[in-house]
Computed example of a mutant assay.
Amino acid sequence: MGQKHSISLNKHYTITDLLMDKRNVLDNRKYECSICLELLYNKQVFQCREGHYSWTDAITTSSKCPVCRVTVKSIEELSRNRFVEEEFAELQVVCPFLFSNILDITNIDERVLESDEKNGCKKIMKAGELEEHLKKCEHRYVNCLNSDCPVPVRSNETKQHAEHCDYSPLECIYCSNKFTTGSIEKHYLECQNIVLSCEQCCTKLKRSELSNHIDNECPNSIVFCKYKSTGCLGQFKRTNEATHLNEINHTVFMTKYICGLEKKLEESNVKNEEILKTLSSMLEQLKHNNSLLKKE
């Protein structure tokens, strides 16, 4: 089993999803970047000489303040607005691991986050404390301890999950080969070292030996008389073979069988003679045709 690695939440939520006082924050637009309209969370905020502010990357891609249109030639012409940064950092937020479907979001513009009241993180904190909290949150999603398992697991549930995980490693107690919880049952249906009972005689033996035992050894297996080819259709348990041979006079079957072979042999001889006559006739005809060709 490997170490637990937190699963990235990039693009699965925005800070807006976590704000406790979301409506007021969005309505007054105080913490909104004037260029990209994103909230100024965890960013360095700069303002133009007229006091309009944006976060660093946004304002450096624009040559003018989007509000007053004053020209901004370089970042050095702007002043840092630490007051807004610190004020935003004081806003109350919830942990994104409160939500049960935080990792299922594919379209962030159409998402509906669902609170997990039973297993989700209930902590409320300042926005400035969020990043540090995410690193150690006991409810954060991490990779399963089993490297092949694709299921994200909450950090405080990894052991419980591993007990039922289909990818937990297991060793077959019969052959010592390695499998997983999800595949071991199928293997047990095929493992050649599993000891089984013969249904006929209850003898214990490995699965790999069972077929040969039934076909050639089991005293209770039903077998045909060894003179079946001569016409005896007797069937009995292997252990009763001697009794059958003593009770039935197989000379009759053997005599009839031999007579049948002799008749077939005679029929074959007749057919062979006919074939030889036909071949001889064809040969004579070929010789005759050949002599005619030479005369021409």
Rank of each mutant, 00 (worst) to 15 (best):
S291N: 14
K271C: 11
R69W: 07
N240V: 01
C95G: 01
S280K: 12
E131H: 03
Q160A: 12
D148P: 09
Q285P: 08
I108M: 07
S211M: 05
G234K: 06
E185Y: 08
G51M: 06
L18R: 02
T243W: 07
G231K: 04
K118E: 08
K43V: 09
Q285T: 11
L103Y: 03
F46V: 10
L91N: 00
M254E: 03
Y227H: 13
H161A: 02
E262V: 10
P169V: 01
L40H: 00
L292V: 07
E267C: 06
K295V: 10
T158K: 03
T251E: 14
K271D: 10
D215L: 15
D148S: 14
K206G: 04
Y257L: 03
F83N: 09
M20Q: 15
R29Y: 05
L103G: 01
Y13F: 14
K11N: 15
C95L: 07
K277G: 12
H161L: 04
H164S: 12
T230E: 15
K122W: 11
N216C: 12
L78K: 00
V45I: 15
K30P: 00
V72C: 06
N193W: 14
T181N: 15
I15A: 00
V252G: 04
E163C: 05
N193P: 09
I222H: 02
F179N: 08
S221C: 09
